[in-house]
Design a protein around this nucleic acid. Structure first.
Lengths: 247, 247
DNA sequence: ACAGTAGAGATCGTTGAACAATTCCACAAG
DNA sequence: CTTGTGGAATTGTTCAACGATCTCTACTGT
């Protein structure tokens, strides 16, 4: 063990404000780049929930070795985007109803807490407003895909009010997981549209510095969205039951 | 892609209640077992923060190949226990002051929300009480190490009141990360002791079904703990500054 | 004496091949 | 219709190899 504990120095940088560019300097390993590609593909529905990701095929397609690919799989499995079954391979995860309920349980806790703390106008107002307007524009032009992503961004900005790196990361993961849910839903397009006016209401309360008010609206918002998704799952189950009974 | 979206069936098993044993059947991959070993070693301080984990050495010591070991490293890096530096290797992470602040930010949100929701007596009361008593016993016998872990368990039980799998996992990760912080502190033994009576106070309020009351106490508890840790970091920084100035 | 540099050694990043273990699928047998 | 039983396909894991990158030392020139 080379390093000792005394390496713990609270670094006050000699060139403040430059550390932000560190991300631009640091190259990324192949594993991370592969994971990024797969993450994007999963998000956009190229790999559908339940589908298997063959080491051989994807390795060939991306031009990376099996070992490197497996490391990327581990990353995404850890993010709950993939499910790893021993000796069977990795599959795009199929969130269960319980998952949906749990995801919203966490979202209620996190996002509501972030919004509740709002009192004065923080600097990130513009960012939230921006996301709402992007959503409006997408709805006006009928671009349902963009509407969905704008909505996701909106909620990520809300969570960002907490000012916590870990909260941001967590919410990012949760929404990525939710995208899987949307992909297994029959009609995802209209899902986000009905929540557009409520985005405005929440933004208004935040702009007014009314944290508790915004929280109340957001809580109701999340409860409704959850109920709708759970309902969609129940419909699927009913349909499956009816189909198997009809044989 | 073999599986289709229609695989999403809410399975009503032919043998209800047996799926719970699925975890017992599934063996674990070598990667996961290795990750488990490393996780434990890091938690108990065998690998100290800042120390480098050589692929070669640890691979030989554990009798696994470099590839398998690297997969395990990815897992732990994702949990923020290890830090991965390209072409330099993996190191036991050294949490910064910002990390400590952020960890407590999240803990306040999560644990307080979990505790706030308590109204009637849930079934998990006994579990919480148990953890408090384990802490008492450890303090009585002067077993500071056990006191620390008992305290961690206490908070994990508090978080478990939320009834969310994801919250449990998150808090588990945060406390694992906090253990790193404790390892770089000079005198970790006495740290937990002073919070013992406050554990009792919080437990009392929970048993009384007074969620908001418990939340208030818990919030103060977390604020004090955070302040103490941040203070310890500042001391370290001062000491480092003095040392370098004396040369 | 000192800054800069070249090079050797160590370690990581990534690949490719190999073999064992396991699962999957089709087909035969009861 | 259910229960073995093969063989093919895929994953789990190891090993060896080579280029890339970092680290440290020793050397050079001023």
């Amino acid at each position: 063990m080379t390093g000792t504990i005394d390496d713990v120095v609270i670094e006050d940088s000699a060139v403040p404000g430059l550390e932000a560019d560190r991300g631009l300097v640091s190259r990324k390993s192949t594993t991370e780049r592969v994971a990024g590609v797969l993450r994007k593909r999963i998000a956009e529905g190229f790999f559908l929930p339940g589908g298997r990701l063959s080491e051989q095929d994807i390795g060939n397609a991306l031009g990376v070795s099996r070992n490197t690919l497996r490391e990327a799989f581990r990353l995404l499995t850890h993010e709950r985007l993939l499910a790893h079954e021993l000796n069977r391979g990795v599959f795009v995860r199929i969130p269960s109803v319980d998952d949906v309920v749990d995801i919203y349980r966490v979202r209620k806790i996190i996002e509501c807490a972030a919004v509740r703390g709002v009192t004065a106008k923080p600097a990130s107002f513009a960012r939230i407003k921006e996301k709402v307007e992007i959503g409006d524009e997408a709805a006006r032009t009928g671009n349902w895909k963009d509407l969905g992503t704008a909505n996701v961004w909106f909620h990520q900005e809300l969570a960002a009010l907490s000012g916590s790196e870990r909260v941001n990361e967590l919410v990012g993961r949760l929404t990525a997981e939710l995208r899987l849910v949307f992909h297994i839903m029959a009609e995802p397009r209209r899902f986000h549209e009905r929540y557009l006016p409520r985005n405005h209401e929440i933004l208004d309360r935040i702009e007014a510095g009314d944290g508790p008010g915004a929280e109340q609206l957001l809580m109701k918002y999340l409860e409704d969205a959850e109920e709708q998704l759970v309902g969609a799952y129940a419909d699927r189950a009913d349909a499956a039951r009816a189909a198997s009974a009809a044989e």
